[in-house]
Design a protein around this nucleic acid. Structure first.
Lengths: 329, 329
DNA sequence: CTTTTTTACGCAACCGCTTGCGTATCTTGC
DNA sequence: GCAAGATACGCAAGCGGTTGCGTAAAAAAG
């Protein structure tokens, strides 16, 4: 059995309260006593029982992390950011992989709120407003990442996809392109729609006219990208550059271009979106928009800390992407 | 404040002990009382305080998960397997991303053993025997995944890389190849050495002579693979098939072959190792050896459960890979 | 050297749940 | 209808810490 505070107290010849105060750096302990206690603590490698601590102090120094899929490469970056920041602040993480199932989300959430965690970070996921309310989570320290519940004023961290698309457009325009094709997933999805808007905005700013024919809406996959590009090549005036609004789309696009025998970027430039690992693996390597997923995670922890302390100044934080230039433009 | 057991007890008009027993399905509670309690519990959504429970019962129903890098796509599969199985069994996970730093490993391990977790799963990582011993972990419920500490008889789960390489070799041999090149990372690394042995074994079994010239040892990366293949092409009798002992190596190899103007798989077949996502993204898609990472995670939890109960029958479990045939062979 | 203020420390209640043991109540058998 | 055994339940002592409050001792003030 591990050492308890009582043991330390007995060895030093003081009460448990004094030991507790000494360890936690609280006032009310004499210089010499404190040193004696701390020395013993070091020597015997005493570590307080976190459960007892949590029970007594109502603080667990643990954060609940809820996400739909831990194998998603974007989310792992978020997790890494969260873990690093949390660890710096002396917090630990309980991991809940929900697989997107509402049932699992609810079950984990109730567990988390049941005196297990000081706060919760909710990445993606499908839970809606009503359910959050029903669980009484709206006034629990909870931060949403990459997920917007408009009616709840919960602290939220998002990526500015609109801006990201605009940066992609700007990049191509700066390189002299006047006719830019957009290969994109279905616009019903919010992210895609935001990208679509950003694309338009970039054209507007540069006084280029928007041509709906240059936009192809496809399934967000490699084959989607492939077919999308073939479609664009059939136009009377095919574009000189493509914004493929997703890296997998971009891979398909690049493949289609190469199959068609065109040169990248000389005859057709391509920019992707997302900066997954595939962008460096294909040839030519892909210029893309890098999304600050890890920073999103770090920011989430910072926000959560504020939520725990009860003073979130600015509930909405929106992070900006960045252009990573490689060989395809 | 959440409901406590005392509240429930008061409502039903019994003592806390009875409530406790009713909830935990223990004997010593009358049929009617039990029902009354359970109804109230449902109605008010009472959930016991896990900290108090853990403190009193010395069981936390929590597992510690230690791994070097959560963004590694192999590890995430392991994590997924662990999470699913643990969740099935009513266990939760504390996540420790150590970045491979010993300091963090030790700090997390001591935390875990400090009444926080019922057991630990240690994936990869750099900690050596002595340190495990020093932490008194050799008799703590601990399972190693993808990491071998020979002198400690800790329950361990490994992948049979030797067998995997043999399967790769067999596959190529069955397709009629007699001269098989091996592009591999440095042989000092255990995994690579095992792959190397498996390759030889496959040749032996088929009565093919082993030619050291066909083996190139390179850095485990895309460029490593690229250069490795160029080297093989310079031989007087270049091989007709390549086993690239890693998917990234394989990507480089494929690139080099395509640059050289050869056809895959007609003139040169390629098989990779690992089945990361890249294998489906490159063209032609890569035949590869799939490693059962997720199963490794599930198995780890099963072993850990046995370790917690104190009866591990067979401490060493070795899982077999599988050939995934695609276009490159 | 006394009086007042400050500091150092102990006491004990509490956090919410578990569990061994004792007793009142209920069955069962004769 | 009563002794003996089984059953249902309560009591109270933990589990290992934290913390408000009271007091004795030390330091500062007069």
């Amino acid at each position: 059995m591990a050492l308890t505070m009582k043991d330390i107290a007995k060895m030093v010849g003081v009460s448990e309260s004094t030991v507790s105060r000494a360890i936690n750096g609280q006032p009310g302990v004499g210089q010499k006593t404190r040193e004696k206690i701390l020395t013993l603590v070091k020597e015997y490698q005493y570590q307080p029982n976190v459960l007892a601590q949590g029970l007594a102090s109502q603080k667990t120094h643990t954060l609940g992390l809820l996400l739909p899929d831990i194998t998603d490469p974007y989310f792992t970056q978020v997790v890494k950011g969260i873990e690093e920041r949390a660890s710096e602040l002396g917090y630990h993480l309980i991991l809940a992989n929900t697989g997107g199932s509402r049932e699992k989300e609810i079950s984990y959430l109730t567990l988390f709120t049941q005196n297990r965690c000081d706060g919760i970070i909710f990445v993606g996921g499908s839970l809606a407003e009503e359910e959050i309310l029903k669980l009484g989570l709206n006034k629990y320290p909870l931060v949403l990442v990459n997920k917007l519940l408009e009616e709840l004023a919960l602290p939220t961290l998002l990526l500015d996809h609109q801006q990201g698309a605009q940066m992609a457009g700007d990049h191509l325009i700066q390189l002299g392109h006047q006719s830019i094709g957009l290969v994109i997933g279905i616009l019903d999805e919010l992210t895609n729609f935001q990208l679509y808007e950003g694309y338009q905005e970039a054209l507007n700013k540069a006084d280029l006219t928007f041509d709906p024919n240059l936009v192809v809406e496809v399934e967000n996959s490699r084959t989607g990208g492939y077919n999308g590009l073939l479609h664009l090549l059939e136009l009377d005036n095919p574009p000189t550059a493509i914004f493929a609004a997703g890296d997998y789309l971009a891979v398909g696009v690049v493949e289609a271009i190469k199959t068609g025998g065109y040169l990248i970027p000389e005859e057709l430039a391509v920019i992707g979106y997302g900066d997954t690992m595939v962008t460096e693996i294909i040839h030519p390597s892909l210029t893309t928009i890098k999304l600050p997923w890890k920073a999103l995670g770090e920011g989430a922890v910072n926000q959560l800390m504020k939520a725990i302390e009860g003073n979130v100044e600015d509930p909405f934080i929106i992070l900006l992407p960045e252009v990573i230039r490689r060989q395809s433009t």
